[in-house]
Design a protein around this nucleic acid. Structure first.
Lengths: 115, 115
DNA sequence: TGCTTATATAATTATATGCCTATATACTAA
DNA sequence: TTAGTATATAGGCATATAATTATATAAGCA
């Protein structure tokens, strides 16, 4: 740790557990670069809307991501105020960018959020 | 990522899932500074020996930690050759040191491994 | 050899997880 | 208000997880 407070093992474990799922980890890696709404994740993961919603909810419940309603859509983004934010970022920086998912989304005309 | 290969989302998720357990995460934080054997973890976590063994086994199975027999004991340590080693290290550096567990162990005369 | 200690494995049980379908809620626009 | 789209929630089911107890394996030593 360089010039930062260590977070508790408990809080870190809670965050890491959520990150230990392939779908959520990919969502987080995408959110590191782009805000997204649920319907975009549904497209990307080819998964039912309730399944996506539940993944998103778990991350929102512990404060890992935050939501912002934009008209009909609810746009999700990483929560920089989350206590484990720095740890999450350092993990995400070890992972490959997921731009192909965004490009695919745009190609299909399904991209919603604008940043 | 600075001058390193990104690891796959899949492999990262597998590692993070194991790290998402409080007991294993604490073990890893300890192993970041000290090699340990199973019987030391049993002391530290006040948990049955088979439970400790199973946690250790899961981490060993994916290559996250490695073992080395030393007489009667099997000493475990972080595996620097593990593909997600750098990611793991950056996570562990966000966590508080666990020296108190080692000190407690020494105080009880239960410290085994010597480094 | 036989006893002790350390560790691993097997079987069981309770709980957690992740997916689905069905349904409810909330906003937009006609 | 009514229809359409986006999202959330509830309930069910199959699988995964983490703990336990009982037992097996392996090394050290008398």
């Amino acid at each position: 740790m360089i010039a930062k407070e260590a977070i508790s093992i408990d809080k870190a474990a809670t965050a890491l557990k959520l990150m230990g799922d392939k779908t959520r980890l990919t969502m987080l890696r995408i959110l590191a670069d782009h805000d997204c709404c649920v319907c975009e994740f549904v497209e990307i993961f080819d998964m039912s809307q309730p399944s996506v919603s539940q993944h998103v909810r778990k991350m929102k419940d512990i404060g890992m991501i935050k939501e912002q309603r934009r008209g009909q859509w609810i746009v999700y983004s990483l929560n920089e105020a989350f206590e484990s934010y720095d740890m999450i970022q350092s993990v995400l920086h070890h992972l490959p960018v997921q731009e192909h998912h965004l490009e695919e989304l745009i190609k299909k005309g399904k991209r919603i959020s604008c940043e």
